[in-house]
């Protein structure tokens, strides 16, 4: 039986959440794995809640529908916790990764998680501001996903951040995002 990891990302338009899902898919190609990355296609408005998805598997991925029962829920904007049901369809052992300045214990209580479900927090927006001066939490979120799930190593993730951001941004922004990815990996807290 193929092992498949399903991730659901929650973000807001313009935060780079869809890019994060794409970078992760690319970084997980190694070792002959199959990958998918796709957003939910609604009206693309800046600031509107959006979802994006990843599937990563050792076997062929044939499913072409949204992830309904995510192993991992990555929440790039904590204001979404009051706006959408981020725990919808979660498994009994799902992992939640939240961009927030709060402690994991506070999030565990807010999300009303069961003991088997894990929660990780990091202040991804603060890291992004410090590393490259813009409130785009996707790079530190990727670092946190790498740490929390071990689905991809930090080195190959960093390589893919360099590759995908390199197409669009200046060297300074790229280096800032790489630094932010590493800090996301290091600073994410489990609780």
């Amino acid at each position: 039986m193929a092992e498949t990891l399903e991730i659901r990302w929650h973000g807001r338009g313009g935060q780079g959440t869809v890019t994060a899902a794409k970078v992760l898919a690319d970084a997980c190609l190694s070792g002959g794995r199959h990958v998918q990355a796709f957003p939910e296609y609604g009206p693309e408005r800046s600031g509107a809640p959006l979802r994006a998805y990843n599937r990563i598997s050792t076997g062929e991925l044939r499913m072409h529908c949204p992830v309904l029962h995510p192993n991992v829920v990555a929440i790039a904007d904590a204001t979404l916790l009051d706006a959408v049901d981020v725990a919808e369809g979660a498994r009994e052992d799902s992992i939640f990764i939240v961009n927030t300045s709060k402690e994991p214990s506070e999030l565990r209580a807010k999300l009303n998680l069961s003991p088997k479900q894990k929660v990780y927090t990091l202040d991804a927006t603060k890291i992004a501001m410090e590393c490259f001066g813009r409130a785009l939490p996707n790079a530190p979120m990727l670092g946190a996903v790498s740490k929390a799930t071990a689905v991809v190593g930090l080195d190959s993730l960093v390589e893919d951040v360099r590759k995908s951001f390199g197409k669009k941004f200046s060297q300074k922004i790229i280096e800032g995002n790489i630094e932010a990815t590493k800090r996301g990996y290091e600073e994410v807290k489990e609780g």
């Binding site: 190609l29 794995r33 199959h34 990958v35 998918q36 991925l61």
Partner: peptide, 12 residues
């Protein structure tokens, strides 16, 4: 090929 479901989704 299916619009968005395949055209805009990333796959291996």
């Amino acid at each position: 090929l299916d619009g968005f479901i395949i055209s805009h989704s990333i796959e291996r």
